[in-house]
Amino acid sequence: MCKLELIVGSPASCMELQLFSAEDKFIGSLDQDDALLGSYPVDDRCRIHVIDQSGVKIGEFEDVSKVIKYEMSNEAYDKRADSMRLFLKQSKLGLYNEEQKEKDKIELERRVQEEKALADAIRVGARCEVVISGQPSKRGTVMYVGQTDFKPGYWIGLKYDEPLGKHDGSVNGKRYFQCQYKYGAFVKPQSVTVGDYPEEDYGLNDEM
């Protein structure tokens, strides 16, 4: 019973056990608490069916909307003298560190301007090599330069020489350029080096 309790999740006192044959025919109830399993006509491939008599409904507590929650308004939380919010405010940490927020804003603006300067030096149609940390270098043609709707900052749209990309120049339903599927990609300007790079054949389209 104890082992069955671990398997089915019902206490032994709430179990009704039924024995079925290999042909799924009812043999009888295992209703003698002090009897050994071997005293019943158990054979290979028989199964024991457990009926939960506790009355607990399966999945009763899986719907979190039925769970009673303790809720507190922002106004009431602000009045507490032992809250994490008050600690952060007093310590000027996280969202309440105005000095750090201003530094982060300035740094973000600097990075955006740096990206813009790099992007402005790259022209559509140029041949290039892309080097991203942890990935092999790739060659392709610049198809798009500028900002996008899918992520902030400046991006370079590329058509790789081989199907090493992720799309066909369209991201989230918006088309930025046209190329074959899996040949298109967007990378940051820092990863692009423009030059007289001949097309490379990686042999990815060769038939085996």
Rank of each mutant, 00 (worst) to 15 (best):
D149S: 13
G165P: 05
D161Q: 09
G165H: 12
R139D: 03
G165E: 04
W155T: 10
E162I: 07
P136C: 03
G165S: 11
Y160I: 04
D149C: 03
G153N: 06
T141H: 02
G146I: 03
G165Y: 04
T141C: 09
Y144F: 15
M143A: 13
M143H: 02
Q147Y: 00
L158P: 02
P163L: 09
K151R: 14
Q147A: 03
Y160T: 07
T141K: 15
V145W: 02
D161V: 05
Y154K: 08
Y144L: 09
F150I: 02
D149K: 15
K138A: 14
R139Q: 14
G140Q: 11
I156E: 07
P163T: 06
L158V: 12
E162P: 03
G140W: 01
E162W: 09
G140A: 07
Q147N: 04
P163Y: 05
V142M: 09
I156L: 06
K151I: 01
G153P: 05
G157T: 10
F150Q: 06
Y154F: 15
F150E: 06
T141F: 00
E162N: 14
Y144A: 05
I156G: 10
L158M: 14
V142D: 09
T141M: 09
G165I: 08
V145N: 04
G157W: 05
E162A: 13
P136F: 12
Y160G: 04
M143L: 03
K151N: 10
K159D: 09
G157Q: 12
I156C: 05
F150W: 15
P163H: 10
P163C: 06
D161I: 05
Y154V: 10
F150T: 04
E162H: 08
S137D: 09
I156W: 06
M143V: 00
G165A: 07
V142I: 14
G153S: 03
L158R: 13
M143D: 01
P152L: 01
W155K: 13
V142E: 04
K138C: 11
Q147T: 13
T148S: 09
Y160L: 11
K151F: 00
Q147S: 11
L158C: 07
G153W: 01
R139W: 12
R139Y: 09
V142W: 08
R139N: 13
Y154P: 01
K138M: 14
I156Y: 06
S137Y: 04
L164W: 02
K159R: 15
R139E: 08
W155A: 13
T141V: 14
T148E: 02
K138S: 12
P163K: 12
D149T: 12
V145L: 02
G146P: 01
L158D: 11
S137A: 15
T148D: 02
L164S: 08
L158Q: 13
W155R: 14
Y154W: 14
S137T: 12
W155L: 10
R139M: 06
T141L: 06
Y154G: 02
K138H: 11
K151P: 00
